[in-house]
Design a protein around this nucleic acid. Sequence first.
DNA 1: GCGACAG
DNA 2: ATCTTGTCGC
Length: 240
Amino acid sequence: MTIRLARPHTTPASEAEAADQQLRLRDHTVLDSSGPAPGAPGTVVVGVDVAYDDDRDLVAAAAVALDAVSLAVVAEATTVGPVAFPYVPGLLAFRELPAVLAALDQLSLTPDLVVCDGHGLAHPRRFGLASHLGVLTDLPTIGVAKNPPPGPAGQAPPDRRHPALPERRGAWAPLRVDGTEVGRALRTRDAVKPVYVSPGHRTTLDDACAHALHLSRGVRLPETTRHADRRCREALAAAT
DNA sequence: GCGACAG
DNA sequence: ATCTTGTCGC
């Protein structure tokens, strides 16, 4: 009701077809500052996440909207449906997108920014979940993952004990692929495992990191992701 | 050939 | 992702 797709989503019939879709769609990715400035007043930031029950073939998704300044919840929506695709490293989007798009469609307002629980540019083919969701909806998106991306960018990820990544909140180290910075290991809390941030669509790496820090006040993961994670689990537990 | 691999 | 108790630290 609120989301009109710039491009349709079709679940691929094979892994090869899925990777092919990513290669074709990635050319539509826009990495600029047309999205909201981090913490901009009047801005609505939406967190999306998914929970699974493969035994019952169920997937629940949640979209929770927060005011970018107060981080107070202003709207939320959840959906439950069948699993559309198996989990394959590098092809996560095909497993989560149908559910996430459905949840966003149930949301009563339009997001100014969507925060995904996964990667964007930091992906084997430079087109992770955040990038994919952004291109399909044409909404600004960023990816904030709990672990390094699969493939070359995640080969030698700066860890909590790695000297290249200072212990202080705000410290970061680049995630590179062939010398190109595709994302950053960002410390959102002192001495705690970093999160992995990368731009999705209509945002820059610098802004993606600024958004991640702004949304993580005193906690490791963005408040958007924490709310969405809790909501989709509840929706899955309540599902028949 | 074997291991590693967002959620 | 998910299965799961206690335990360390602020």
